[in-house]
Simulated scan of single mutants.
Amino acid sequence: MNIETFRNYCLAKKAATEELPFGPDNLVFKVMGKMFALASLNDVPLRINLKCDPEKAIELREEHEESILPGYHMNKKHWNTLILGGRLSPEMIFNLTNHSYKLVVAGLTGKQRKELENLE
C-alpha cells in the first residue's frame, strides 16, 4: 500500500484532518483534534502507527512479528507500528485503521462525540 491510498482512506473518515505537527516527515491524521494514525513519509516501505486495544496489540504482534511492532515513539501498550511492505493485506490495514479511529472516537468527551455525530 502506498501513502496516497492510506491518506485517502484516512481522510474519508468523518471529521478526519491531516497535519504535520512533528515536521515534514510525519503525516498525522486526527479526528476532533485527537490522533488516530501517523505515517512516516521517509520510510520505505511505508510505516504507519495506529492505536490499538492493548490485548489485541499483543496478539497482532505475535501473529505478524515482521510487520506489526510496538509503536515507534509511541505508548507501546496502545500503539502499533505497521510495516506496509506487502505482508499485510489492504483489508487488514483498513480494518486496523478503522479500529484505531473507533478507539479514538470512543475516548472523546460526550460533547465532542455529539459534535462529531452532528457533522455532515
Score class of each variant (00 low, 15 high):
I3K: 12
I3P: 02
I3Y: 00
E4R: 07
T5Q: 14
F6L: 15
R7W: 00
N8G: 11
Y9D: 03
L11S: 07
L11I: 05
K13R: 15
E18Q: 13
E19F: 02
E19N: 09
L20T: 13
L20P: 02
L20I: 10
P21W: 15
P21T: 15
P21D: 15
F22N: 09
G23A: 08
D25E: 12
D25T: 12
D25H: 10
N26F: 00
N26K: 10
N26I: 07
L27R: 12
V28K: 13
F29D: 08
K30D: 06
V31K: 13
V31M: 11
M32H: 04
K34S: 06
K34Y: 01
M35Y: 00
M35L: 08
M35P: 01
F36W: 07
L38E: 06
A39C: 14
A39D: 09
L41Q: 10
D43Q: 14
V44R: 14
V44E: 11
L46P: 02
I48Q: 05
I48V: 15
I48P: 00
N49A: 13
N49L: 06
D53G: 01
P54V: 01
P54G: 03
P54N: 01
E55L: 02
K56F: 00
A57H: 03
A57T: 03
A57L: 03
A57M: 02
A57S: 14
I58Y: 01
I58A: 13
R61M: 15
R61C: 11
E62L: 13
E62H: 07
H64K: 12
E65I: 13
E65C: 08
E65A: 13
L69A: 07
L69H: 14
P70Y: 06
G71K: 08
H73W: 08
N75F: 11
